[in-house]
Amino acid sequence: MYIARSQSAVSSTTRYTNPSILGDQALRLIKAIVLKKGAFSHENIAHIFIKQTENQTLEEFKINLEKYLFFSVENQEEIEDWRQKFKDSLSLWKKDYNQEIITKELFLRTCNRVIDCLTTENAKEPSSLFILLLNQGHALTLVIILLKIILICRNSRKHLETRIAHLIRLYDKYPEDECKGVINFMEIFNITFAIYAENVEYNLIKMEEEQNSNPQLNLDD
């Protein structure tokens, strides 16, 4: 609610306070990046990807999935190392099934595998890819990639939430000063998924605040 109303004519702070540790400028930036419009919206690209990968082999699907996840990522040269490690990890997974045609089950398992690679693979320690990306200061990039996974495979949402819960448990025993990067990631994750993955069309919300106590319902609003 705070994000939805934060750019209205009357400040949202009159009714809601910022629930995150991030400032308003950061919230506006995340909102702008997450809510890309038109042909290049995350949702539109996800629909195109799903259609284009029908009847592909697992090997072809893995190649195209990696391209889809990194399409439009800013400053790609900064994460080139990380991207290559991710690519290598995904290509080695289920190699024996590479020539199988992708099924709904295999689609789901692959998306869940990607989530494991990007968060934690065993619930006992963060994945090397998770640590590497956070150490490089790319928490938002990681969150957007996780969002793109959920947009092509809604059934992976529960698996993602489980892995996020595992990460919280893993870092819970450390002092706050030692896991600022993880806290920042969690904040961005919560904000991004509140905006995009809860089926709320924020771009349709355009409210004119009532500045008086007129009890009559304004149906247009």
Rank of each mutant, 00 (worst) to 15 (best):
L65V: 07
F40W: 04
I50F: 03
S41E: 03
Y68Q: 01
L65F: 09
E59L: 02
L65H: 02
E59A: 11
T57P: 00
I45F: 09
E43D: 13
V34T: 14
K37L: 12
E54M: 09
F40A: 13
V34D: 06
F40T: 15
F40Q: 12
S41Q: 05
I33F: 00
E66I: 10
E54I: 11
I50D: 01
V34R: 03
K37R: 15
Q56F: 06
K51L: 08
T57V: 01
K37Q: 15
T53E: 08
E54A: 13
E54G: 03
I50M: 09
S41T: 05
A46H: 10
L58Q: 04
N64T: 06
K36W: 01
I33V: 13
L58T: 01
K67L: 09
I33C: 09
G38W: 02
H47Y: 10
A46Q: 10
L58C: 02
Q52K: 14
Q56V: 07
I45M: 13
F49I: 06
K51G: 04
I48L: 09
L58P: 00
E60T: 04
E66K: 06
I45P: 03
F40G: 03
T57I: 06
N55A: 08
E60G: 06
K37S: 15
F49H: 05
I63P: 01
N44E: 15
L58F: 00
E43T: 11
Q56E: 05
I63L: 08
I63G: 04
S41M: 07
E43Y: 12
K37H: 14
Q52P: 03
E43R: 12
A39C: 10
Q56N: 11
L65P: 07
K37Y: 12
A46G: 09
